[in-house]
Design a protein around this nucleic acid. Structure first.
Length: 804
RNA sequence: GGGCAGGUGGCGGAACUGGCAGACGCGCAGGACUCAAAAUCCUGUGGGAGCAAUCCCGUGGAGGUUCGAUUCCUCUCUUGCCCACCA
């Protein structure tokens, strides 16, 4: 009988469907250990699943099936991240309305997921666009609002001219929109912000205890960018104005030879004098015309002198004040002290404008940014940088010139989007009462259906045009008021979806206390690393807010995180349509079947590594499955009684069971598969010898099952079993079969292998040594030489160290 | 410029805690089956020397520690990813 994977797939899909996916459903009380295995949910794009989805989802499916067989109660849900720019941009491109388009895509992708045999508990499916879901997104927003974590501010924000909306800092990558790649602009817009910065320290500290990849933790640390330092106030010569600067290098204070203000700094024009006023004004105007990107990428050093001086707090020397683009307005105080001897940027600036350079840190050939011992620093000379920071800080603070300060790179989360496809922000603007939150009983504020939802580009949401939706009575004074028309960013819904899975139908709360207690934190979270400072940071923040309000029982949402490696095209380049190197999973399943695709993606290399697709490599997995299939047919035909025990067979099989059982939780799927391949070779031979009984073979099917559920289940069925393998338990490793009767010792001479030496288990070192020295092969190398030393590594190696 | 992760056959990769480098797979070569091809199955396959037993070389490069290094240390070259005038 042929290995007709297509027929097998259809057969079991139908059976699983008929059984309403019951084996994968979580029961309320089970007495079992709870394990929550979570995928990053996809946005339903219309082009369906790609190889990257399948890689991550296969891994979690293997884990889920494995833990179920180990007797755990496994929660493994799936849903749809359907709001936001990706879905809306795609809909715009297709000239369709997302409201009708998204459900179609969901159906398409759901079908694909089911075809891939992923064992999701479909009874818990959610979509962020479902009003029953986003009512809670809005509710959570209101909790933040009531806690004072939400504020409206007009500030210079990143704006994507193509997506026609404001963006958060996290959504701008290298000066470009994370979604469409257009260069972003800076615009003054009034936007809702969420005070994520208030949680900066906790977001930082919480990382230490998480079982996450170090690289992701490091990315978040860098993104939060905590800097501890001092704010120093400099007085102008005429004592009329003050300028504050932030520095982490107070030890270089005596090396200050100039001050620099960002062009946006209010003090710039205030202190500019005489002819310098016009030069300064002109410079500032020009700078403000340039985009952030232009400023950043500019190689030339620019700046102007304001004509004013400040006074050094210790030396009382006059320090010129300049204005330059290289100083960022929105970090620190928007002004810096220039220490050209010990800061590269200051050095460049000083060189360009011939400002003096004073070295104050001794030692080191390259003076830039090095800590060391102070010189030319009056009474602080001779102190180390660390000591000096402390001492200078103390003195300046006691005279009120400096204060300790901590700055973060992290900015508050710009939360307004001037787009249609998102959760409406549940606030009302009342001319009498100001901003009024929508009462919780009135939630959800549903997104109205519209004909045209194109973004306007005016800084107004498309919702602003829908009069009947905007006009509303003020919940406080009952007078005419209007709805907030901006929508939430795409990240809002994904900040808490893992909570809704726990209790997806609950109408009273977003999830019951019992369910939260039972399942949090998420045991294992698998997804791409590209969300390091977006979703993964926002979700942690959101969770912390809920934790503080006692809505969730744990301070962190995801105990363990794993990033799947990116799958490159066959040409070792990132898959992209323009390169034409995209591998379509549908083509693979058509030719080789679902199980082959699943296993091949797991076999390509370590799960977390970036790895290229090799079209030809698939054959190896396909051959393996065909071999297993043909062994299964023979096993059935021969029907060897279980009483026949073959020692070598059982040894090999149990070693494999052990290996696969260790590799799965360690996510070493590639080596697990290679172990099964070796085992199948042995099974083939033993089957031909008439030593392989159905029951023994079934143990092999059980360990194959998480990887290749269709093939394993079908063979299980063919061997007369009527149950689903889902309810089988993982085969127990019989230690008896793992025990060795003899051990192989490697005999080396001067570290080079000269002999494999098989000896009884209980043979002592001295005896092995004596016997080994008798061996002719070893004798050759010892002949006429003096044994200086004999190294014995327990059960492994004997090494004779000899000399002529 | 900064951070992180890598560099092992023709290719993807394996190697526990410092202990047989190259498991497993692809590809390739030879063979079986076939009128033939594909598919499948069997055998071989790091490089070099040799009929052979066997020997020498070999984990980006140069040093070092060690009886022994892909693994640890120093320097160096290089690739990928992320961040980037963050004071």
């Amino acid at each position: 009988m042929k290995y007709d994977f297509e027929k097998i797939e259809k057969k079991w899909q139908k059976i699983w469907e008929e059984k309403k996916y019951a084996p994968w459903k979580v029961k309320k009380t089970s007495g079992k250990k709870n394990t929550y295995i979570l995928d990053m949910f996809p946005y339903p794009s219309g082009s369906g699943l790609h190889t990257g989805h399948i890689e991550g989802y296969t891994a979690t499916d293997i884990l889920s099936r494995y833990y179920r067989m180990q007797g755990h109660q496994v929660l493994h849900p799936m849903g749809w991240d359907a709001f936001g720019l990706p879905a809306e941009n795609y809909a715009l491109k297709m000239k369709k309305n997302p409201m009708s388009f998204v459900p179609t895509n969901i159906e398409l992708m759901k079908k694909q997921l089911k075809k891939m045999g992923f064992s999701y508990d479909w009874s818990r499916e959610i979509s962020t666009t479902d009003p029953a879901y986003y009512t809670w997104t809005q509710w959570m927003f209101l909790q933040m609002y009531k806690k004072g974590l939400v504020y409206e501010a007009e500030s210079p924000i990143n704006f994507c001219p193509s997506c026609k909306t404001g963006l958060a800092n996290e959504e701008v990558v290298g000066g470009r929109c994370d979604r469409c790649g257009s260069e972003t602009e800076t615009r003054m817009l009034s936007q809702w912000h969420i005070k994520i910065t208030q949680y900066a320290d906790r977001l930082l500290e919480g990382l230490d205890g998480l079982g996450w990849p170090e690289s992701i933790k490091e990315l978040q640390r860098n993104w939060i960018g905590k800097s501890e330092g001092y704010e120093i106030t400099f007085k102008t010569e005429d004592k009329e104005n003050t300028i504050s600067v932030f520095t982490t290098r107070l030890d270089t204070l005596f090396g200050v030879t100039f001050l620099v203000l960002a062009p946006e700094h209010q003090m710039a024009l205030k202190i500019a004098k005489g002819d310098y006023y016009f030069i300064t004004e002109n410079y500032i105007e020009n700078a403000q015309k340039r985009t952030a990107k232009e400023r950043r990428s500019s190689d030339e050093v620019s700046g102007v002198f304001t004509g004013s001086y400040v006074v050094h707090p210790f030396t009382k020397i006059r320090i010129p004040v300049w204005v330059s683009e290289y100083v960022l307005f929105d970090y620190g105080t928007g002004a810096v002290m220039g220490v050209p001897a010990h800061d590269k940027r200051d050095h460049r600036f000083a060189t360009r404008f011939h400002l003096s350079i004073e070295e104050v840190i001794a030692g080191k050939d390259v003076p830039h940014e090095n800590y060391g011992v102070l010189k030319n620093s009056e009474e602080f000379t001779g102190l180390t940088s660390q000591e000096a920071i402390e001492k200078i800080g103390e003195q300046l603070m006691s005279s009120g010139i400096a204060t300790k300060h901590i700055y973060y790179k992290l900015r508050d989360w710009v939360f307004s989007r001037q787009r249609y496809w998102g959760e409406p922000i549940p606030l009302i603007r009342c001319p009498h009462c100001g901003i009024v939150p929508v009462p919780e009983k009135d939630l959800p504020v549903t997104l109205p259906p519209v004909k045209s939802y194109e973004p306007s580009g005016t800084g107004q949401s498309p919702l602003a045009k829908i009069k009947e939706w905007i006009e509303v009575k003020c919940p406080v004074c009952d007078k005419k008021a209007t709805r907030e028309t901006n929508t939430m960013p795409q990240w809002a819904g994904s900040c808490w979806y893992y909570l809704r899975y726990l209790d997806p139908k609950n109408k009273k709360v977003f999830a019951s206390k019992e369910s939260l207690k039972a399942w949090l934190p998420v045991t294992m979270y698998v997804g791409g690393a590209e969300h390091a400072v977006l979703h993964l940071l926002y979700a942690r923040f959101w969770h912390m807010v809920l934790y503080d309000a006692k809505h969730v029982p744990t301070p962190e949402p995801f105990a363990r995180l794993v990033n799947q490696g990116i799958i490159l095209g066959p040409d070792h380049e990132k898959m992209s349509k323009s390169r034409g190197n995209v591998v379509n999973p549908d083509d693979i399943t058509k030719e080789f079947g679902v199980d082959t695709l699943r296993m091949y993606e797991m076999f390509m290399g370590p799960f977390e590594d970036t790895k290229p697709w090799a079209q030809e490599g698939i054959r190896g997995i396909f051959r393996f499955l065909i071999r297993v299939w043909s062994i299964g047919l023979d096993v059935k035909k021969k029907n060897v009684p279980s009483s026949i025990k073959d020692d070598a067979l059982l040894k090999g099989l149990h070693a494999t069971i052990q290996k696969v059982g260790q590799d799965i939780p360690a996510l070493k799927f590639n080596t697990a598969i290679s172990a099964m391949m070796e085992c199948s070779d042995m099974l083939r031979k033993k089957c031909d010898e008439g030593a392989l009984s159905p029951n023994t073979f079934i143990d092999f099917l059980k360990i194959l099952f998480p990887f290749a559920p269709y093939t394993a289940q079908e063979l299980f069925h063919m061997l007369g079993k009527t149950t689903l393998l889902d309810s089988a338990s993982w085969p127990t490793v019989n230690k008896k079969y793992l025990a060795q009767e003899s051990k192989t010792i490697i005999i080396q001479v001067n570290g080079k292998k000269r002999l494999d030496f098989s000896v009884p288990l209980d043979m002592t070192f001295e005896n092995i040594k004596t016997e080994a020295m008798k061996s002719p092969k070893v004798k050759i190398y010892l002949k006429g030489k003096k044994i200086l030393k004999t190294i014995f590594a327990q059960d492994r190696i004997i090494n004779f160290v000899v000399k002529e």
